[in-house]
């Protein structure tokens, strides 16, 4: 099993621990997590709820603070990386501002980061094209379907061109047909932009279809049980899901989940 990614490490975790203090006592959200993510990799985190996959992604984004161990993003602490705006984050819900148009929503991070007016317009146009939403810039979020709203939120995360894209179950609330199409588009987008993507999911086919590396996690305490480097080619049509390799990887993911007692309940 290779631990080293394709390029130089962008995200590195060594002996990472994160414990929440609750009224019922400490909860070990992450225990002894070791992981290297290389530049340009597409890494999925999969596991049942409570396995710490979202917590890990939030720790990378400096939205949670590890209690022990080392975590670096672009060679910096997550806090420094956040301040240098090293990543774009896509949440489970699109979370677009209802009082801003789609273009206005995408402009939000650009305004905060102080891009010039012309640059804002140019970037909004570019990312709208990238997520296939040309002509929708002047619409308000409620005029768009759920899938289109989520695409707009991805455009918002891409607008300031951060090297890393962190996605927390971005398609979890969408139906399977829309989800398949967005998965396909996301792969194309990743191919075109060469970004490093961290992707949290609880769907095995989604994880296998998208990833170059699949991180299988288990709960109580949240930990990594398996890291699978996918042998699938970079070009992945949807029907690759019927291939033997795909089914073998999916099987191995399931085995990893079982080994972590993820199916016990």
């Amino acid at each position: 099993m290779r631990d080293q990614g394709a390029g130089s490490p962008v995200i590195e975790a060594r002996g990472l621990e994160l414990t929440f203090q609750t009224s019922d006592g400490p909860v070990h959200a992450l225990k002894n997590v070791n992981l290297l993510i290389g530049k340009g990799e597409f890494v999925s985190f999969i596991g049942p709820s409570g396995c710490g996959k979202t917590t890990f992604l939030r720790a990378i984004a400096a939205l949670e603070h590890p209690t022990a161990g080392v975590l670096t993003v672009n060679g910096m602490t997550p806090e420094e990386a956040r301040k240098s705006r090293a990543y774009g984050y896509v949440f489970q819900a699109a979370g677009l501002y209802p009082w801003r148009t789609i273009a206005g929503n995408i402009r939000l991070p650009l305004e905060i980061m102080g891009f010039s007016r012309d640059e804002q317009e140019r970037r909004v146009r570019d990312v709208l094209q990238l997520v296939d939403l040309e002509g929708f810039g002047k619409k308000y979020p409620w005029q768009l379907s759920g899938g289109m709203q989520q695409r707009a939120s991805i455009a918002r995360a891409l607008a300031f061109d951060a090297e890393i894209l962190l996605m927390d179950e971005p398609f979890g609330a969408l139906d399977e047909i829309v989800r398949d199409r967005l998965n396909e588009e996301l792969l194309k987008l990743w191919n075109r932009t060469g970004k490093t993507i961290g992707f949290v999911t609880h769907s095995i086919p989604e994880a296998v279809y998208l990833s170059t590396k699949i991180v299988v996690m288990s709960p109580r305490p949240g930990r990594i049980t398996d890291v699978i480097d996918s042998p699938l080619p970079k070009e992945r049509p949807l029907d690759i899901r019927d291939s033997r390799e795909f089914i073998e990887i999916a099987h191995r993911v399931r085995e990893g989940l079982r080994a972590g007692h993820s199916y016990d309940e």
Partner: peptide, 15 residues
């Protein structure tokens, strides 16, 4: 979530 989003942009309190 909306507050976290602005945190990821390193937005100030005023913003």
């Amino acid at each position: 979530m909306q507050l976290d989003l602005l945190r990821t942009y390193n937005a100030s309190r005023g913003e």
